[in-house]
Design a protein around this nucleic acid. Sequence first.
DNA 1: AGTTATGCGATTGTTCAACAATCAATCGCG
DNA 2: CGCGATTGATTGTTGAACAATCGCATAACT
Lengths: 199, 199
Amino acid sequence: MLIAGDLVPGERLSEAAVSERLGVSRNTLREAFRVLTHERLLVHKPHAGVFVAVPSLASIIDIYRVRRMIECQALLAAPARHPASRRMRAAVESALASRQADDWIAVGTANMEFHSAIVALADSDHLDRLYANISAELRLAFGLLDDPDYLHRPYVDRNVAVLELYLAGEAAEAAALLDDYLLTSERTIVAAYARQLPA
Amino acid sequence: MLIAGDLVPGERLSEAAVSERLGVSRNTLREAFRVLTHERLLVHKPHAGVFVAVPSLASIIDIYRVRRMIECQALLAAPARHPASRRMRAAVESALASRQADDWIAVGTANMEFHSAIVALADSDHLDRLYANISAELRLAFGLLDDPDYLHRPYVDRNVAVLELYLAGEAAEAAALLDDYLLTSERTIVAAYARQLPA
DNA sequence: AGTTATGCGATTGTTCAACAATCAATCGCG
DNA sequence: CGCGATTGATTGTTGAACAATCGCATAACT
């Protein structure tokens, strides 16, 4: 429900209401709340309840800083023909197909899968898990701005270019392109976010 | 108890026993177990219970890979005279004092604080949290090998050198030294670990 | 004898009900 | 109109209960 955008950031989640809604007991629900809070998707205010996290501007900027560091390093240090490159290719093709069908939410998830595959190039469980968390948090932020076309369209072709460069063995160029790409993406999101936040 | 080494990796934690030992109810304890499991300090086997995590060799190698990537990047990109440099200096001095007193556990925690401060140079909440998790996991591994002298002694002087270089504005040299330092540290740990594991 | 079924005991998974602690909003009062 | 006390609702925590599941020891069988 959180990553599907069914829940509005900032919304308070009553234990009684949600547990009845989901058909589980309060105690079981609290266990789930604890881990989701640890994943930063919920925030827990003692004696006040849990709320759907509202990604702050600072948090978004932080996320992009981490993404640039991790994704670019992963791409730079990746050996040629790493197994994860199959995932990259599959994600790119899925994005292209979804763009053809004008399904921009699918394009968005395909793009995120592409970046997740890039991180997988580093062969690190810890980085994979960190990236999964970051992605979920970013999804929450995306849910706030509703214009998937504008958000995801420009990056399909860039992903193709990054993939081509990497497959051609030009890792440094691929990383540089990715870094620039992430910077502009960050700028777009931050702008849209700042525009919408005061409202 | 986990990071203090009171619990042996692999040990099973009975809900009833631990809840009585700590004076909390089973439900409350299960909430705690859930987040500690999410932090990788415990492992949860369905219908079998939770166990103190046993850091695998693969996990240790992974941790060092992540450390090299994050710490070196943080050091490289850090602006001069970053606030966190005070933490670095304080940690180094604490380590020196503890070495004088032959308190090698204190030296170990001071060294870890030093590296935590390096990560703080990146000004990233997400990286700080990731590093806290990694540190706890590493502490668990250290608890398995009991020779704090051998594990921490060689690195006090290296930390001094890294700090000096960074403060002198030679970030690249500092990062290079740190990278080499982490590589030899990893080698030492892995060797000691592999030596002790079969027993 | 060795191996496979079987039953038992113990532990986890989950729920429910209850109560204390705490917070927020309402109401009353100066 | 501002401020403080009271009330109401929600969270925090506990204890007990029961079903589901697993590991193990016993028993049966080839």
